[in-house]
Amino acid sequence: MQIEEFYKRNTIVGIVGNSGSGKSTFINQFKQSSKVGIINFNIINSIKVIDQIEYYDRFYNYKIRELEGRREEIIKMLEIDDSILDNNIYELSESELAKVLIASVLLYNPETIVFDEMLDSFDNKTKEKILKLIIKLKKFFKKNIFIVTSNIDDIYEFIDDVIIIDDGKVLLKGKKTILLDNINILTEKNIRVPNIVYFINKMKEKGINLDNVDSVNELIKTIYREMR
């Protein structure tokens, strides 16, 4: 399956599957280029934090003159503490390192961005801030974004489409609503569905038809409407 057929502007795609299902193997089809930015812990290539942040921009772009302004903007957007800029990479905490790696790719502004297992390095508050930032990248900058994770519950609300990997192959792909439609196949293969999808299905089994919503707040509203 050619990876290019999954590219869609203005879309956030979740690439999910159980641990060991072959997500990394699937993602390895993506190659870092001026148009595709892959963010994971394998892209560490500098010792100093500031060198890591600027590395890809210097490599792919020629607009060195504007570099500092854009760099400051991204550091602020990701809430990276100025004090760590002088540090060496190995002195950072895991969450600081993850932010630096994200910055190094956002800086050179590729059209397609892949967040490969990055979100688990953050506490919940920071995770949500990063996901909201990703939504901005999609809406205002029309990027094509892929988020790879073993924990679909963390991202379900924020994604548009989903690609389910099982046993090294693409099992399902499409809008995220297909998870509810295919819950039987997924359960059979022991693939975890988001809690909200599992819950809506269980209610359906009891004869109560809730809307196929993606957030807790929407869920409470649809339950209230049905069960009042």
């Binding site: 159980n18 641990s19 297992e117 688990d120 390095s121 073993s150 924990n151 519950d153 975890r192």
Partner: peptide
């Protein structure tokens, strides 16, 4: 040290 954070919840 954050040993299993990147694994799915069942694992």
């Amino acid at each position: 040290d954050n040993a299993f954070s990147k694994l799915d919840i069942d694992k």
